[in-house]
Amino acid sequence: MVCALGAAVAFGVASVLQAVAARAAADPAEGAGGSGVDARLLVRALREWRYVAGLGLDGVGFALELVALRSLPIYAVGAALAASLAVTAVTAARLLGTRLSAREWWAVAAVCGGLALLGLSSGSEGAGDDHGGDALRWGTLAAALAVLAAGTAAGRLPERSRAAGLGLGAGLGFGVVEVAVRAIDGMTPGALLADPAVYGLLIGGAAAFLLLTSALQRGSVTAATAGMVIGETVGPALVGVLALGDRTRSGWAPVAVAGFALAVAGALALARFGELSPPGESPAAAAARVPTSPK
Rank of each mutant, 00 (worst) to 15 (best):
S15Q: 15
A226D: 08
A144S: 12
F260G: 01
L216C: 13
D58Y: 15
P254D: 06
A7H: 04
V67D: 12
Y75G: 01
K295H: 09
L192C: 14
S161I: 12
W138L: 10
L85N: 10
L192E: 15
A68P: 06
R99V: 05
R103T: 06
L193E: 15
L118F: 02
V16H: 07
A107D: 03
A180C: 10
G123D: 06
G190N: 11
V290L: 06
D195A: 14
T98N: 01
A39P: 13
T222F: 08
P189M: 14
L244C: 01
G6I: 03
P283W: 05
A19S: 14
A149K: 09
T222E: 12
G175P: 11
D27P: 09
D185L: 15
G204H: 13
V239Y: 00
A180E: 05
A92G: 09
A68Y: 03
F209P: 11
P158G: 08
G200I: 07
F62S: 13
D38I: 10
P28R: 01
A4H: 11
R156C: 05
A154L: 10
V2Q: 10
L202E: 14
L115M: 08
G173M: 07
V37T: 13
G33M: 12
A10D: 10
L193C: 09
W252G: 07
L211E: 13
M228W: 02
L210A: 15
E232L: 14
V87E: 04
A267N: 02
S122Q: 12
F174H: 06
A271P: 03
L85M: 04
G186P: 09
G114N: 06
Q217G: 12
M228N: 09
S124F: 07
A92Q: 03
A109G: 13
S15T: 10
P294T: 00
T140W: 11
A288K: 02
A76K: 00
E30D: 13
E159P: 09
G205P: 10
A154I: 07
A39F: 15
G167L: 08
V177R: 05
F174Y: 14
E104N: 01
V234L: 06
V198G: 15
A153W: 14
A197N: 15
L120N: 03
R23H: 09
V241W: 00
L17E: 02
R50G: 02
L168Y: 07
S15A: 14
A226C: 07
V264M: 06
S35I: 04
T188K: 10
E104R: 01
P73M: 01
V181H: 08
R94T: 01
R182P: 03
L42D: 04
V67W: 14
R247T: 05
A153D: 04
V241A: 09
G97F: 00
L5D: 04
A150I: 12
C3L: 12
S277I: 12
E275P: 04
D195N: 15
A288C: 04
T248V: 02
T233P: 05
V179R: 05
V87H: 00
D129T: 07
A86V: 03
L117G: 06
